[in-house]
């Protein structure tokens, strides 16, 4: 187990280092980064001064080491638009994205897993087909359309929920559904496939032969075995939720990382974009590490492997 854990953490560290380096390369080798940072219409002197101030006239290796040293001190540079540390801007928006992602994940897991279980348990019946229609809808309707439809129905017509903003918990409901719908379908499909697969295995028949009811077999044995592939999906879905947040946050005027990313790209606030890219990459890596540890917690074949 210890070897497994250390191995996974080393892999994660390598991945994080790779991300940091790629972000540096994209920014510094694909052209003069000064041009990305200056306001539009700046004079040649202003550009040269900024280039010197930021150290972009130094050799590339020196710049890389300075960049790494900066990251080590949690220094991600100053936003050229807002004149405050880029990291502060991103961190001020982060809680909103966390709320939204948590809300969407609640929708995705809370609806997707039960739907998948019901589909597997009622394989070949009308129940499965009805649920399959729900799943298909969830994965086919694009987020920008479902978001606008939700606003139209529940905010404009029924006036149950606010159209946008972050004033209350009720404001979180529609963005969470719009963002979570696609993931819900993914969870439902994966859970269904995993469970149908497990239900066909010999240990299910053997457990029934001990006198267990089908329900007891599912609760005690099948669900845990089905969880392993679903965890893999969960780790990837958390990353997809963050990516999908860009659209949902724009539709619902939700002041999270996604909206900030759009604004920063539009205002050429490149250092803020860089922090967002790094942050989302770290979250991706962290969730896969979490998934690896979850496998070990569930599956003794991984936990006890030497």
């Amino acid at each position: 187990m210890l070897r497994y854990a250390i191995g996974r953490l080393i892999q994660a560290a390598v991945a994080v280092f790779g991300v940091i380096t790629i972000v540096f390369v994209v920014m510094h080798v694909s052209g003069d980064p000064t041009l990305l940072l200056v306001p539009q219409g700046a004079s040649a002197e202003e550009i040269a001064a900024l280039r010197h101030q930021l150290g972009f006239d130094q050799p590339i290796l020196t710049q890389y080491l300075a960049y790494l040293a900066g990251l080590a001190h949690f220094d991600f540079g100053i936003s050229v638009v807002q004149r405050v540390p880029a990291i502060d801007i991103v961190l001020s928006r982060l809680p909103y994205t966390i709320y939204l992602a948590a809300g969407a994940l609640t929708v995705a897991v809370g609806a997707g897993i039960p739907v998948g279980i019901l589909m597997a348990a009622n394989k070949g019946t009308l129940v499965e087909r009805a649920l399959a229609a729900v799943v298909l809808t969830g994965q086919s309707v694009p987020t920008f359309l479902s978001g606008i439809l939700l606003i139209l129905i529940f905010a404009v017509e029924l006036r149950w929920l606010p159209t946008s903003g972050v004033g209350s918990l009720s404001a979180l409901i529609m963005p969470s559904i719009a963002l979570g719908a696609l993931s819900m379908s993914t969870f439902a499909r994966m859970m269904r496939i995993a469970m149908v697969d497990e239900l066909g295995k010999d240990y299910v028949r053997a457990a029934r032969a001990r006198g267990l009811s089908m329900r007891a077999v599912v609760m005690r044995h099948v669900l845990r075995n089905s969880a392993i592939p679903v965890i893999t999906v969960a780790a990837l879905e958390i990353g997809n939720l963050l990516a999908g947040a860009v659209i949902v946050e724009t539709v619902f005027a939700w002041p999270g990382i996604g909206q900030l990313a759009i604004q920063s790209i539009q205002s050429r606030d490149f250092l803020v974009v860089q922090v967002i890219v790094l942050l989302i990459s770290f979250i991706y890596v962290a969730t896969s590490v979490a998934a690896d540890f979850a496998y070990a917690a569930i599956d003794p074949r991984i936990r006890l492997a030497r």
Binding site: K201, D202, Y203, R205, A206, A207, R220, H221, R224, N225, I298, D299, P300, R301
Partner: peptide, 8 residues
């Protein structure tokens, strides 16, 4: 081997 739940 297949008749036993691998996780229990």
């Amino acid at each position: 081997s297949a008749s036993l739940d691998p996780l229990t």
